[in-house]
């Protein structure tokens, strides 16, 4: 994978790429180690000895009230995470509580800790992106490769299919998938997004196959008797790794925005999963309610519910955009850098 190594060498010299990578890295750490940052149960507890009970016995804490969870560990030697509430824990301070020491960002409209919701929201958003991108890359490589290698009918069909899928609104696919299921699941959303996104990957892979087929090294491999599959896998696909990676990174931005849109609109049945879009929808509802005369809501809470997830969302989008753009620039050495030297 020297090709990718060179690519990363170029990318990592760019300051913008590093900023983007840092933003994504922080969010990814939030997502991966969500239970270490905010959980209804301690990291470690003694008598009896337990490690991360919030992960090991997730169902026990699913909607256990905060006070009950704390009572379980009152007189034991424990190490708590930063925030002592999970994304689904009903806290004891009630809905729309202002920031406090126990709940650094306050609570949302259902009395759940806002900071925990945001941290677990990172898991939802990035997990969805990762799942959908992996799935769409696999499908895209298979179909794009097939079209490029076989040519003829397969190719014509794929080109039209890619065009149709590429221009088909993702939000409608999501709506169709949501209509299909009785309880919304993360997996179905991953599949819905992959259904829309594979086309772009297939287009890139096919273009690479068509381009590389005319190159000397592919001809040489063919002359040596390599099978089309081997040529595709060993000689062509590696050149396509860069474009695929770039498309995937740009994909993170648009998938995270799509996820926020879907949960903001609350398409389909309600869910208890943490999502930035859902929190923003609560903020939107509060903000609208305060315009009516005798509503007893407070503006600070509405702004908090709108702006905090908004910042997380922006961070993801900006991070992946910066990194993806650096990748794209690094991949056009012949054009971009050649011209730079010329002027």
């Amino acid at each position: 994978m020297t090709h990718l190594r060179i690519l990363f060498g170029v990318v990592l010299k760019s300051r913008r790429a590093l900023v983007g990578l840092a933003m994504l890295g922080v969010l990814a750490l939030f997502g991966i180690f969500a239970e270490w940052i905010a959980a209804p149960a301690p990291l470690v507890a003694t008598e009896p000895f337990e490690v991360l009970p919030a992960v090991m016995h997730a169902e026990r804490f699913d909607s256990l009230p905060e006070s009950a969870a704390h009572a379980m560990y009152r007189d034991r030697g424990v190490i708590w995470p930063v925030v002592r509430a999970g994304a689904r824990t009903p806290t004891s301070v009630g809905a729309h509580a202002p920031p406090s020491r126990a709940h650094p960002l306050g609570t949302d409209a259902h009395g759940r800790d806002l900071f925990a919701r945001l941290v677990y929201g990172a898991r939802t958003a990035l997990g969805l992106s990762l799942g959908a991108i992996v799935l769409s890359v696999l499908a895209g490589i298979a179909l794009g490769g097939l079209a490029g290698v076989r040519g003829g009918f397969w190719n014509d069909t794929l080109v039209r299919l890619v065009e149709t899928v590429d221009t088909f609104p993702a939000i409608i696919v999501v709506a169709l998938v949501r209509a299909m299921e009785s309880a919304p699941s993360a997996m179905s959303l991953v599949i819905a997004v992959a259904i829309v996104r594979w086309a772009e990957i297939a287009r890139l892979v096919r273009a690479e196959v068509v381009r590389a087929s005319a190159e000397g090294y592919v001809l040489a491999a063919r002359a040596l008797g390599a099978s089309p599959i081997r040529i595709f896998y060993k000689h062509i696909l590696r050149n396509a790794a860069g474009p695929i990676l770039t498309s995937g990174m740009f994909g993170v931005a648009s998938i995270v925005l799509l996820e926020a849109t879907i949960s903001f609109l609350a398409i389909g049945a309600a869910t208890n999963d943490a999502s930035w879009g859902e929190t923003m929808a609560q903020g939107a509802a509060m903000w609208t309610a305060q315009a009516t005369p005798n509503a007893t809501t407070n503006t600070a809470s509405a702004v908090r519910l709108l702006v905090a997830p908004g910042l997380f969302l922006m961070m993801t989008v900006v991070g992946s955009y910066l990194f993806a753009e650096a990748l794209r620039n690094a991949m056009e050495p012949k054009t971009a850098r050649g011209r730079l030297r010329a002027d």
Partner: peptide, 18 residues
């Protein structure tokens, strides 16, 4: 341009709606 892209449409429209 990047800032415009990243600003969540939902937040802006809610703030402006009133």
């Amino acid at each position: 341009v990047l800032a415009l892209y990243a600003l969540p449409t939902a937040v802006i429209s809610v703030l402006v709606a009133n």
